[in-house]
């Protein structure tokens, strides 16, 4: 009896607060403003206009760039951490986690004070007699903000996979005559693929849907899909068009996630079966 009723409240809860809201967004996206529901694909057609497609393309581009930079910087860091002496490792991992506990907005705000016209960076430049530059309110600033905010999300999953990896495999490869490069390409990297993939999706997802980083470090006009959605709901008040963009963003992310999952499963199979 208790078994049956104990999840009852959550069934009701998830129906009201998870399923119904998604349904509402779908209904809104498929209709045009008016007192009664009128089916229309107008909102989706409107998104196909070059202005909006350009925003989408820019979001995807900058999120991909942020993900690749995080991977390039984060992978070596994860390897260094994984090989560290246990005594220092706990401290090093903690040092990596501490900034993540800082409020996300404060971390982004910190870069405003550094990149700003009178900020530290320009002070340093003038110290060396170099001309002042505008760092803030540029695409580069947004990219930097993303890398800064999401780098730990890339390092941690890769680090976890690397520490669980069986060292005997690497030693075996070395015994069989592989040099360092070959060991990395043929053994370490393929085995760490599940960590890489979860890191990639943990960076790409928030990067492609953010509106805060672009709002604070780029300012004003719509820059990314997130800003576009926010503007439609809070400024322009076109909830129908906003819902359509949200649906597209949601579908895009769900597709990316399922591709990542599939890739992850293949990676494990290629990596030599069920090692862990």
């Amino acid at each position: 009896m208790l078994k049956k009723i104990s999840s009852g409240p959550y069934w009701l809860w998830s129906l009201i607060f998870i399923v119904v809201p998604i349904m509402l967004i779908i209904v809104f996206s498929l209709s045009v403003p008016g007192d009664t529901f009128r089916f229309s694909l107008e909102n989706y057609r409107r998104f196909m206009e070059p202005v909006y497609l350009k925003v989408l393309a820019r979001s995807v581009k900058i999120a991909v760039e942020a993900t690749l930079i995080c991977l390039a910087i984060g992978y070596p860091m994860a390897m260094i951490l994984a090989k560290m002496h246990l005594k220092y490792r706990t401290i090093a991992v903690m040092l990596l986690v501490v900034p993540m506990w800082m409020n996300f907005l404060l971390r982004t705000y910190a870069w405003m004070t550094i990149l700003n016209k009178n900020g530290i960076l320009n002070q340093l430049l003038s110290l060396f007699g170099l001309p002042q530059m505008t760092f803030l309110y540029s695409e580069g600033a947004v990219l930097l903000g993303m890398v800064y905010n999401f780098l730990p999300f890339m390092v941690l999953p890769i680090y976890t996979v690397l520490t669980k990896m069986d060292n005997a495999l690497i030693e075996a490869a070395e015994d069989l005559g592989a040099n360092r490069g070959t060991v990395f390409l043929k053994v370490t990297f393929p085995l760490s693929l599940p960590g890489v993939l979860s890191g990639v999706s943990m960076v790409f997802m928030p990067a492609v849907s953010t509106f805060v980083i672009s709002d604070l470090l780029y300012g004003g006009q719509y820059m990314l899909v997130g800003n576009l959605i926010q503007q439609q709901f809070l400024v322009v008040n076109d909830w129908h068009f906003g819902s359509a963009i949200s649906m597209l963003l949601m579908v895009m992310i769900l597709i990316t996630m399922s591709i990542m999952n599939r890739l992850g499963q293949n990676g494990i199979e290629q990596g030599g079966g069920n090692i862990w």
């Binding site: 999840s7 959550y10 069934w11 998830s14 009201i16 607060f17 998870i18 399923v19 119904v20 809201p21 998604i22 509402l24 967004i25 809104f28 997802m205 928030p206 492609v208 849907s209 509106f211 997130g226 959605i229 926010q230 709901f233 909830w239 906003g242 819902s243 949200s246 963003l249 949601m250 992310i253 769900l254 996630m257």
Partner: peptide, 23 residues
Amino acid sequence: MMNINSIPILNPDIVTGISLMTL
């Protein structure tokens, strides 16, 4: 249940936010 449960985790925050606001 597990599929419905994963919606708020997988969905971007902004979509969860605006869908609740609409609700």
